[in-house]
């Protein structure tokens, strides 16, 4: 199984010097390898440095490649263990472990999304994935690697997003030219909102003006009108309905 694992040297990652994990699987994650995995090999290793080393000489390539692959696998394993441990702590409600884990998986999730969703939608899907991870955290099984669980959720969210996007797109009809207007049509004039407002009852006019013209919040507007938020919402809703009717009536009359 192909398990994407974050080994980015830049960006947020598991930090050395965090509180050492304790309890619930602590025996599996011994202190020395934990620190070792988060300090030396992880920071010393970069894809660029590997390329440089590979270009040093063809004789050394075979040996160094094998060594690096071994080190790579060990790092990946250790990192996976740390992530699994952090996930267990997250399930127990530990906010620090939550921050560490999400910081660590962030770059991997971003890489996962590139090529799967449009670049302007990566942020939205990224956020959805994190929400989903958080909501499904009770389904992670302790003792199993985190990555298959994590990327199954990410794949599901990305697929959902693509499906929604596709459905939306299938309803949109692209036309090369704007449809021509009938000869007698004239471009619709913007409605005279102020004139129409005078035809509304005072309470509805006030609610509409405060919310839509003055841009006040519901609470502030309700406070000023001396009514509850619910009552103000009702007044505003009635105002919208009345305006829509008035605008429609004007359009028909024109």
């Amino acid at each position: 199984m192909d398990i994407p694992v974050s080994i980015q040297p830049s960006g947020p990652g598991i930090r050395a010097g965090m509180d050492r994990p304790s309890g619930g699987g602590g025996g599996r994650c011994a202190p020395t390898p934990f620190v070792a995995a988060t300090e030396a090999p992880c920071c010393a290793y970069t894809p660029e440095s590997r390329i440089e080393r590979l270009s040093e000489g063809s004789d050394a390539i075979a040996g160094s490649a094998a060594r690096m692959k071994k080190a790579d696998d060990a790092q990946r394993l250790e990192r996976s263990r740390i992530r699994a441990h952090l996930m267990q702590r997250l399930q127990q409600g530990d906010a620090d472990s939550c921050r560490l884990l999400l910081d660590d998986v962030g770059p991997a999730v971003t890489r996962f999304l590139r090529g799967r969703v449009a670049s302007d939608e990566v942020e939205d899907v990224y956020q959805e994935i994190f929400m989903a991870l958080f909501q499904a955290r009770h389904t992670y099984e302790a003792g199993r690697p985190l990555e298959p669980w994590l990327f199954a959720i990410a794949r599901n969210v990305a697929a959902d997003h693509s499906r929604k996007r596709w459905t939306r797109a299938s309803w949109e009809e692209l036309t090369p030219d704007l449809p021509e207007r009938a000869a007698g049509d004239s471009p619709a004039a913007p409605p005279d909102i102020e004139g129409l407002l005078t035809r509304l009852p005072a309470a509805q006019r006030e609610a509409f003006a405060m919310l839509k013209l003055d841009g006040m919040s519901l609470e502030d507007a309700a406070g000023r009108a001396g009514v509850s938020v619910g009552a103000l919402k009702v007044r505003a809703h009635r105002a919208y309905k009345a305006l829509r009717k008035l605008i429609g009536g004007e359009g028909e009359g024109a």
């Binding site: 409600g93 939550c98 921050r99 999400l102 956020q127 009770h138 992670y140 099984e141």
Partner: peptide, 14 residues
Amino acid sequence: LVEALAGTIKPVRP
């Protein structure tokens, strides 16, 4: 996002 999630975290029963 992370701070918002960490701020609302509660223990869950796996």
